[in-house]
Design a binder for these strands. Structure first.
Lengths: 344, 344
DNA sequence: TCGATCACCGTAAACGTTTACGGTACTATG
DNA sequence: CATAGTACCGTAAACGTTTACGGTGATCGA
């Protein structure tokens, strides 16, 4: 005799009543419920999730999909971990089990997701690193699986998303650099098809145009979103004959490598080239200090979790007026890396 | 009509046979098996995991537990992600679902693990960040849940583990620094009760003694295992009146912050203080280049997965002679951070 | 007093598998 | 030909829940 049956026998009531008591159903005497709850605690009863899942067709699991692997590891740096931490705190409130689904770089993300879904692994999903055209979104929408994404995509299936304000960062950065007298300004974008690259570069081009400047295609650097990418950008940039005087680094970790590249060439950030980047836990240890955008990753995770729950029928009433799509603004922290002012 | 029943009806055979065919049982005609497999592919049949779990009492999931959160995020840097990637490739071979269980810093790891186990979440577990005395090990052993740990612990319940060669690193570092003429050598350890701190410091003390030197307790720095910790160490160290001439940094990310701390004080690594540390993806972008230990995190993950599987009855025959406990040596990459030689 | 309403509880089916057991037809063996 | 053995397959129980449905007393209103 095991599980709920044992509990029922111990209390000399039916398993149906026990189940109802435990699940907070209204049609059970409060006195009875109290006895059940006490007995459950005493006997250390924990409902078998397989049984529940089989019966209800629900797993009580939410999956947070991220990517890993040699080339990407730098990217993830700890960004997604921190966001995950925020997500976790929200889901814990609802007794949902949150797990991280790390898709190896060895595997195609679309295939990976298909496997996860086919297996009926999770009741809901959070996707990160969304691509400009992302088949995963259509796939999930077709399967009617609730999900939210961290990052916009052109593939819009009406899912909730949160994203960083890449347009705002581009605009602010360009305005700021132009005001300091810069005319040749380089920008960066991820090597892959992530949407933020387009958002960022397009907005930067627009901002330049508003100042009567134009974007030199030769000054748009594609790189892997990690330290090595930043280093590569520095190498590429410094090898150009007509070197730009400023650069905007879109990835949080690029600055580390970029600094290294400059140092090797005997150049100093903020003196020889102005840099505006984005902050990460590591970037606070750069010298000279980085001028860059910063945000609370954990708060972002909390908001992300809430947008997902707001679209899941079982939880939506907890978040009646959650913003389903939101641009998350970052704060500019002024450092020394863009300190110098050019003669106009 | 759904699931296996639908498949059986479509083929006009019994569900028992279908199940046997799919699960590779011997007592089924190969011709029949072929038909079943084809039909399964055609109809896109995927076995319901809840059903299997309920019947078999097994979940097909392996959990990799790590910790996250504000103070820890730096630690994790990307170390565990990369290890995870290695683990993943092994488990994929066995069609096991690997998920990351990220315990938030907000929550007690012991409680977290208890929840995971009570829920019957996984068939096996991998634990990282093991403590010197780690109740989790006894807990899992008592529940007879197969698990492996990344890191030794004094709490030995016979589980398989893999660990880095902290003794070797301490010995090599001290020998090397002493050979260069250093007499006052600082060492570091994590702020918490992680076992590696003891291994490392004790061995370093022994190595010093072998050279007729003794370890100054004032030169053992405790810090959080991240960039900020390294920075703090630099601040503490530089404020001492009788400053050491060399330091060994045990954490992979410490060097970043330590460099920053030295730079702020107008000092240069490898000239004013000799540094031996450990390498991470980020550390390759330090200037001057870091002398430190390096390893393949991915290979470590692969080995870790294999030790776990070797102890699980269902998979052990795949790994008949896996090393169940192994010290993983790292390679010393010589850089410029310990370049200078003191007058003897 | 009688029917209706209500609060609470028990019964049993259902979720989708796996697998022990037994049955059938065929082959080999004497 | 009888028997034993074998290869394959069908049947049905079991895993632990949830929940629709119906039943039992009690209360209440007329």
């Amino acid at each position: 005799m095991t599980g709920i049956r044992r509990l029922a026998q111990h209390l000399d009531i039916s398993i149906g009543t026990v189940s109802r008591a435990l699940n907070g159903r209204p049609d059970v005497n409060e006195e009875t419920r109290k006895r059940v709850l006490e007995a459950a605690a005493e006997l250390g009863y924990v409902p078998n999730q397989s049984g529940r899942s089989l019966r209800q067709g629900t797993t009580n699991i939410i999956g947070f999909m991220m990517q890993t692997g040699a080339e990407i590891t730098g990217q993830g740096d700890t960004f997604f971990m921190s966001v995950f931490d925020g997500v976790q705190t929200v889901f814990a409130r609802h007794h949902l089990d949150l797990v991280a689904l790390l898709c190896s770089s060895q595997e195609d993300p679309d295939d990976y997701l298909r496997r996860v879904v086919a297996r009926g692994f999770a009741d809901g999903l959070i996707l990160s690193a969304t691509q400009r055209h992302d088949p995963r979104l259509e796939f999930l929408a077709k399967r009617k699986i609730p999900f939210a994404t961290l990052g916009r995509s052109l593939t819009d299936v009406g899912q909730p998303w949160l994203d960083l304000d890449f347009e705002g960062m581009a605009q602010t950065s360009i305005d700021r650099l132009v005001a300091k007298g810069h005319r040749r300004i380089a920008v960066t974008r991820p090597h892959d098809d992530t949407n933020l690259g387009y958002l960022f570069v397009d907005q930067a081009a627009g901002a330049l145009a508003a100042h009567g400047l134009s974007m030199d295609p030769d000054l748009v650097f594609r790189s892997t979103p990690n330290e090595a990418g930043g280093y590569q950008i520095a190498r590429d940039l410094l090898s150009k004959q007509d070197r730009p005087t400023a650069i905007v680094l879109v990835n949080e970790t690029n600055a580390i490598g970029f600094y290294r590249g400059m140092n090797e060439a005997g150049l100093q950030p903020g003196r020889d080239i102005a840099i505006i980047g984005r902050h990460s836990p590591q970037s606070h240890f750069l010298s000279p200090s980085l001028t860059g955008f910063s945000l609370s990753r954990r708060d972002l995770g909390i908001a992300l979790a809430e947008t997902l729950l707001a679209t899941m029928p079982a939880f939506s009433h907890f978040y009646p007026n959650a913003e389903l799509r939101k641009i998350w603004r970052e704060e500019l922290i002024e450092g020394e890396s863009d300190a110098f002012t050019l003669p106009v």
